[in-house]
Amino acid sequence: MPIIKSIQELKSLREEIQNKRKKDFSERHPIEIKVAMATCGIASGAKPIFDFLIEELPKRNIAANVKQTGCMGYCYAEPTLEIRIPNQDPVVFGYVDLKKADEIIEKFIKKGELVDGIIPINYIVAN
């Protein structure tokens, strides 16, 4: 990555990233999955779920962008995932284990059906 030399360059880089993200969403992988992986999330078992998603989704022909994030705040319900599928608000699932992750792929991601274990978003974010 070349060094960002001015505020204009920072701005155009940001726009470039945002456009690429939009394009990726519409063309490459319309599904985005975030796995809360702070120390506490990992301690509660988020890593095997992350690995499971990375491995299983391509096998099941699902183009998704799986990424790690920091703490989502729902420590009592770890491991937690947030999933965005097209034309829907992102949905957060708590107490996810491998079985639940499989159910989420088969029912929620493939068919758009909600499954048990949803966490309603309980905050607003200053952006």
Partner: peptide
């Protein structure tokens, strides 16, 4: 909603190991 995130505005949303995620926000 009772919670309002300023300090935690990106926590749980971006990949902390990817700077472009932060720049995007």
């Amino acid at each position: 909603k009772k919670q309002y995130r300023i300090a935690l505005r990106n926590c749980g949303f971006i990949d902390p190991e990817v700077i472009v995620d932060y720049i995007e926000k």
